[in-house]
Design a binder for these strands. Sequence first.
DNA 1: TATATCCTCCCATAAAACCGGAATTATCGA
DNA 2: TCGATAATTCCGGTTTTATGGGAGGATATA
Lengths: 105, 105
Amino acid sequence: MMNTPDAAAKLEALGNPTRLSLYRLLVRAGHGGLSVGQCQQRLEIAASTLSHHLKTLIIVGLVSQERDGTTLICRANFDRMNELVAFLVAECCADSNCASDQSAA
Amino acid sequence: MMNTPDAAAKLEALGNPTRLSLYRLLVRAGHGGLSVGQCQQRLEIAASTLSHHLKTLIIVGLVSQERDGTTLICRANFDRMNELVAFLVAECCADSNCASDQSAA
DNA sequence: TATATCCTCCCATAAAACCGGAATTATCGA
DNA sequence: TCGATAATTCCGGTTTTATGGGAGGATATA
């Protein structure tokens, strides 16, 4: 079960427009992932800037990397996102009866 | 349909631990909501600080307020959260076949 | 070894966020 | 109108973030 500081760190990581674009790029790429260079081409930002943002996403666990020769393949970590979403909708209306609470079975 | 800057603004708003605690407080409170004073009591932060955070959440639409005499009732806007979650999981694996893509009908 | 490619780390700068005390606005009751 | 309560805005200082240029590490190939 996730706690508030961890969830906040993940949300903060996604809260930057450039980082959110980067993350979604990887989400669309799916399991195949994208190399850092491919990400840079698509986002058109400085390599160092991209590296910073990538590091931020990796630290919070939303993205993982795997080396393939000289290139690094980046992938979105879907499990972490699912955990985050679950955290956000958890305890919906715990103190009242909420008509829009479809999360409960 | 939400765009990236709007989604990033919402995620950034939720990315601060204090603000996330505040938001979840309102989520738990449900449709009844909570007054600003009640939020302050529970979070134990300065009134001005709370007002800043509240304003941030209101600007991005995640929280709404309604006046009742001298007190302001704050409520989480569940529709906006649902939109945000939908945006986050949208286009999952658009460029590949993804086994964990259950969002598509 | 020499060389090229890919990426990260160090560094500096500018911008933005965070926080809270004091003053201000809004509303209600006497 | 006066006073009390509720909440926001103003103002400032401090901290954090965003960005990218350039140096340097890691890896592959000849």
